[in-house]
Amino acid sequence: MGAVENRETVRRIYAAMAQGDLTAFGGAVHPDYVWRLAGHASWSQRFEGQEAVRSRLLKPLFALFATQYRAQAVNIVAEGDFVVAEVRGDVMTRRGDRYNNEYCLVFRFRGDRIAELVEYCDTDLIERVLGPYDTAVAPG
């Protein structure tokens, strides 16, 4: 696939996520894809493979939310196998706090699917609103 097709894949993902539909993302990733949260906060980790991303990141993260998570792409740029998306999230936590992080997401494609996602965001907001990773994702 080329940059135009890769950009369209990311556009479709965020068009769906703006409506609260998270399924488009799952269908666009390789089974062995990597999600890395950049930075030096407790959430700044590397998750390898769909199962690890789902069980160690997404499932516990979404359990913290009281409302449907929505995300909207503000800007999308693509070149070669890479797509960069500026994204704004919107959700309320179960504790009643707004968690509206802003992201710069770098997607690397292999063929027609996402092989790697690197997330840059406000890690201070994550720690303040969601808490430290180990505490936030602990079964409760």
Rank of each mutant, 00 (worst) to 15 (best):
L125R: 13
A138Q: 14
N101C: 07
L61E: 08
T9I: 11
A85I: 05
E86H: 09
G111I: 14
A71I: 05
W43A: 02
V34Q: 01
E5P: 00
H40M: 02
N75W: 08
R36H: 10
R11L: 05
L125P: 07
T67Y: 09
D32L: 13
L58R: 14
V87C: 04
E79W: 07
F107L: 07
R98T: 07
F109D: 10
W43G: 05
A18I: 01
F109R: 13
Q72A: 11
D134P: 09
T9R: 04
F47T: 00
A24G: 01
F65N: 05
G27K: 03
E8R: 14
T123M: 11
S44G: 07
W35R: 00
V74Y: 03
Y120H: 15
P139Q: 09
D81T: 11
T93S: 05
Y103M: 04
Y133V: 13
A38K: 05
P139L: 11
E51V: 15
I114Q: 10
D90L: 01
E119W: 08
M17G: 01
D124T: 13
G140R: 10
Y120A: 09
D122S: 10
V84H: 06
D21T: 04
G26I: 01
Y14C: 01
S55N: 15
Y33E: 02
Y33M: 10
F47E: 09
T123F: 02
F82I: 05
R36A: 07
D124S: 08
F47A: 09
Q50T: 15
G80H: 11
L64V: 11
L57G: 12
A85E: 04
G49E: 08
C121T: 12
D21W: 03
K59R: 15
D32N: 12
R108V: 11
I114Y: 09
A73E: 12
V29G: 03
F65A: 09
Q50N: 11
A85K: 03
Y14S: 01
V129C: 08
E119T: 12
A38T: 03
H40T: 07
C104Q: 06
G26A: 00
V83L: 08
E5I: 02
D32E: 14
A41D: 13
P132F: 00
F25S: 02
I13V: 07
Q19F: 02
G80F: 09
V87M: 04
E127G: 12
C104Y: 06
V53Q: 14
A52F: 08
Y103K: 00
V84N: 09
A85S: 06
E127L: 14
R7C: 02
